[in-house]
Amino acid sequence: MSYLLVAILAGLAAIERKGFLQAMLARPVALATLIGLALGDVGGGVLVGAPLELFWLGAVNLGAALPVHEALGTAAIAGGAVLAGRALGGVTPEVAVLSLLIAAPLADAGRRAERLTEVLNEKLAARAEERLSRGDPAGAARVNLLGLFAPFAISAVLAPIGAALAAEAVPRLVLGPFAALPLATGWFAFSGLACASGAKAMRAPRARVVYYAALVAGAAAVVTVMWRVGVRA
């Protein structure tokens, strides 16, 4: 049942991402939240989705140039993390980082699959022309909607597979060979890199200075607060 939900949400996200609407619902921060909601752990979804959003902030479709399939990657990672978290008392940073490492390559696989659908869709174009030549313009126009099936199917198949791999492997690793490793630090390292990736996606002349200024000023504020709290305690 859970995997069915992951499949449906991943499939719909793949459609929303390109074929219909594009209202940010397939962006990692939204999709991971929705998957968390569907699987009964909104907080877990948000925890995973926020850094993934920044990590893949630059994943945009410019003309014919395709980015990685951030929605497929997110569905697999968030789905896997929330399901693995059921066995481990919630989505901890340890669970999140291992799910990421296991399922993130699917984003790249999704990009390859999308290229393939673009070639297959040439057949749809031919079909539309054929319908038109038979005197059925309304039918020719509607051929467009047939293109929604392939992206749905690809993500609906691959996302649950990635989620299942993570959901099966993560508890074994966390309770087994990796039990002594400080994995949580790995998740925070990844989240830091995600901020950097997000900043890099903001290509503006002053973006570099502003990014570092915010980082340094924010960090100074955080350290000050910690110090004062620490002193009082």
Partner: peptide, 9 residues
Amino acid sequence: AFVCGLTAA
């Protein structure tokens, strides 16, 4: 970029 820096903090 400012928001990304704040997130890091």
